[in-house]
């Protein structure tokens, strides 16, 4: 199947799911509950799914598990909040949303490139440690520079631009924009991995020594991959800041960084769609933890879910669904000897 055909089919299927789910919710639930699901669960799952997509893109196709992706999203969020007109308190201000969003995305790409350059010689546990150190360092920097970032309270009143006369934060408007962005970025990743750059990135994942001997500059490739992941995380960061009506250090702290890793692993690092599966599972548990068990025990609950999924299926919920599918169809495990 050609790349164009794959993208067309995936795009149509994705669009179908993203349109049908709200429709089904409106048909099955009262309007206020349907809007709650759309605004509080699906939209949130899409936003954090986008940020998790940046991590999954690096991990799946480059073999780099970066813990700095929430930091990169936070940089985009802070640049937006600091520069846009109407945010409280005014740090820089004066820019309309289009320009502020553009600057935020540029900042996230630059931050991604910087993370890539700093971590360029590290792999595996060392890459995890260096990106974790960057994430925690940035969190402390934001927290302690009160004049620049307004400390714990953060920057508020980032409401987003009006879209065709409707508020950006209207659940349906927000959902439409978040789902459109998520779909475009998802298709973008699927497209990118079939380009010369994307194939070489997978070559770096499998064998960096060989790819270098074939004429590729591994260092440059890695840095550019982090820059692209920075753009993806930046899109998520902008949406998250508008969704939360602002940004504070808590949204980029160690807890948020770990949560993003949990979403990616729970969904599965084998395919980019795992990012969205993981973020949806996470959003559902986060929302209904109080009803299921106890709101204060959310971390225990999601920790248990994480443990169960990782123990049963090391490749996350995606791997689990593939196994179940094979079991139901009665097909043997790939590589298993014929009966």
């Amino acid at each position: 199947m050609t790349l164009a055909r794959t993208l067309l089919l995936t795009g149509t299927a994705g669009l179908g799911i993203l349109c049908l789910v709200p429709l089904a919710l409106f048909l099955a639930l009262p309007e206020n509950q349907a809007l709650f699901w759309i605004g509080n669960i699906l939209a949130r799952a899409l936003i954090y799914g986008i940020i998790a997509l940046s991590l999954t893109f690096l991990a799946t196709y480059g073999g780099f598990v970066s813990l700095a992706q929430m930091m990169v999203a936070g940089i985009a969020g802070y640049v937006l909040a600091m520069t846009v007109q109407g945010a409280v308190p005014v740090i820089i201000g004066g820019f309309g949303y289009p320009m502020a969003i553009l600057m935020a995305l540029l900042a996230s790409v630059l931050a991604g490139l910087a993370v890539g350059a700093i971590a360029v010689r590290t792999n595996d546990i060392y890459l995890l440690m260096i990106t974790l150190a960057l994430a925690v360092g940035f969190y402390r920097f934001v927290e302690s520079n009160i004049d620049l970032f307004n400390g714990y309270e953060g920057i508020r009143n980032v409401l987003g631009p009006d879209i065709l006369g409707r508020r950006f934060r209207d659940p349906m408007v927000f959902y439409t924009i978040a789902s459109g962005t998520a779909l475009l970025l998802y298709l973008g990743v699927l497209f990118l991995v079939r380009t010369p750059f994307g194939l070489a990135l997978q070559g770096i994942r499998d064998n960096p020594r060989r790819i270098s001997a074939l004429g590729y500059n591994v260092v440059l490739h890695r840095i550019v991959a982090f820059g692209i992941a920075g753009f993806i995380a930046g899109c998520g960061g902008v949406l998250a800041t508008i969704y939360n009506i602002g940004i504070s250090p808590g949204s980029i702290g160690l807890g948020a960084t770990i949560n993003l890793l949990i979403m990616s692993v729970v969904g599965g690092l084998g395919h980019p769609v795992g990012a969205f599966v993981g973020s949806l599972i996470f959003a559902i548990f986060d929302t209904f933890a109080a009803s299921l068990y106890d709101r204060d025990r959310f971390n225990s609950l999601i920790g248990a879910v994480f443990l169960v999924i990782v123990l049963i299926s090391p490749d996350g919920a995606l791997g689990l669904s593939r196994r179940l599918g094979r079991l139901l169809r009665g097909k043997p495990k790939p590589g298993a000897p014929p009966a």
Binding site: F197, L199, G215, H221, V224
Partner: peptide, 25 residues
């Protein structure tokens, strides 16, 4: 070799390695 990729993909990577445009997006 790049064991997660197909034979053709391995050869494509090798063909493009010595050319300009290997970083093309």
């Amino acid at each position: 070799l790049f064991t997660g990729l197909t034979v053709i993909d391995n050869l494509l990577i090798a063909i493009r390695g010595a050319r300009k445009g290997r970083l093309s997006l």
